[in-house]
Simulated assay, not measured.
Amino acid sequence: MIKSVICDMDGVIYRGKQLIPGATDFVQRLLSTNTPFLFLTNNAEQTPLDLRLKLESLGIHGLTEENFITAAMATAMFLKAQKESATAYVIGGGGLMSELYKVGFSLSESNPDYVVVAKSTSFNFDQLKKAVRMIDAGAKFIGTNPDMIDPVEGGNEPAAGTILAAIAAATGKKPYIVGKPNALMMTLATRKLGTHPDNAVMIGDRMDTDIVGGMEAGMKTALVLSGVTTPEIMAHFPYKPDYVFNNVGEIDPQAL
């Protein structure tokens, strides 16, 4: 039986605006073999439509919005299950705000129920101050994902985890993080595919999110070395992936 594939994007399919070698062939193999798959990303800035259009601009075609699940989507689903019609102060992009609107949340800077934090290229001191004061006043502290850096063309850049760390340091409170490596996001992905974790493989470039998250959810795991993890970094972790590849171009989904 062909395993269902759950695949990260940043550092796996592309770095910033640059396609990783072999990514196009990998996606075409998924499509041509009718392999059930989802792109599961801790990116909370973009919507599934944004991601599909981005991949099309890079030369990857044949996908729909149903092929994606983002940390913003998972965060919105989690918060809706916790409390209907709540309010949130958001540090993050339009993708996160859009998903919160979809589940009936209102955005507010006045005594919000939640402070929800994702990667933001416009993060500033005023936002930090507001978030700290709201959490001190009782707002629940939520993070979309813990990634400290994101791989982009030319190197790495700060990600959501760096903003979360600043707020946590100022408040003394740790956020509840919905995205990878939280098994909740993995469960949402396998549920969306209609498959059991035993019949799924998680492909990613991060040992501390993709690989540990997939492993703890009961999936097979495949690490690609095209993102933030090197063999030297991998050796420092107390667990290991089931497979290691240089990039997704080397992966035959039928052989997993």
Results as ranks from 00 to 15, higher is better:
P151E: 04
N43A: 11
S106A: 15
P253Y: 09
D252Q: 04
K3P: 06
L31K: 09
I167V: 14
K17R: 13
R15D: 08
N124P: 01
S110I: 14
A166F: 09
P158M: 04
E250S: 06
R52F: 03
L128N: 06
I167L: 09
V12F: 02
K102H: 15
M97L: 13
L164H: 02
E109L: 13
H196D: 15
P231M: 07
Q254N: 14
T41C: 10
T35S: 06
T187Q: 15
T121V: 11
P197A: 12
A168Q: 15
G94R: 01
K17Q: 14
M219C: 11
M207G: 11
A23F: 05
N145A: 13
E56T: 11
K240H: 14
N246T: 15
I142W: 04
N182W: 07
K240L: 09
G155V: 09
G95K: 00
A183G: 03
M9C: 12
N156Y: 14
P146H: 05
P48A: 04
I203F: 00
G249M: 04
V248Q: 02
A165V: 04
G93K: 02
A183N: 04
F245L: 12
T24M: 10
S4A: 15
G213Y: 11
I167M: 09
P21Q: 13
G194Q: 12
D10N: 10
N145P: 07
K54S: 13
P48S: 07
A235V: 05
K17M: 12
F78M: 12
T209I: 02
H236Q: 15
M202S: 06
K102N: 14
G204L: 07
G143Q: 04
I69L: 15
L51Q: 09
G62E: 11
T195S: 10
T70E: 06
G218C: 08
H61R: 12
M215N: 06
D242A: 13
P197Q: 08
T70L: 09
V178G: 00
A255M: 07
K17F: 08
E153N: 12
L38N: 01
T47Q: 03
G227E: 01
I2T: 14
N156I: 14
L100V: 09
Y14V: 02
N145C: 14
G138Y: 05
P36Y: 10
V248N: 02
I2F: 07
Y89R: 05
I211F: 06
Q18W: 04
R133F: 15
I60W: 06
V224D: 00
T24P: 00
M185G: 00
P181Q: 13
L53W: 05
V201Q: 00
R206E: 07
Q28K: 15
M1T: 14
P146G: 07
G138R: 07
T187I: 02
E65G: 10
V116N: 05
D113E: 13
A72N: 03
A200R: 00
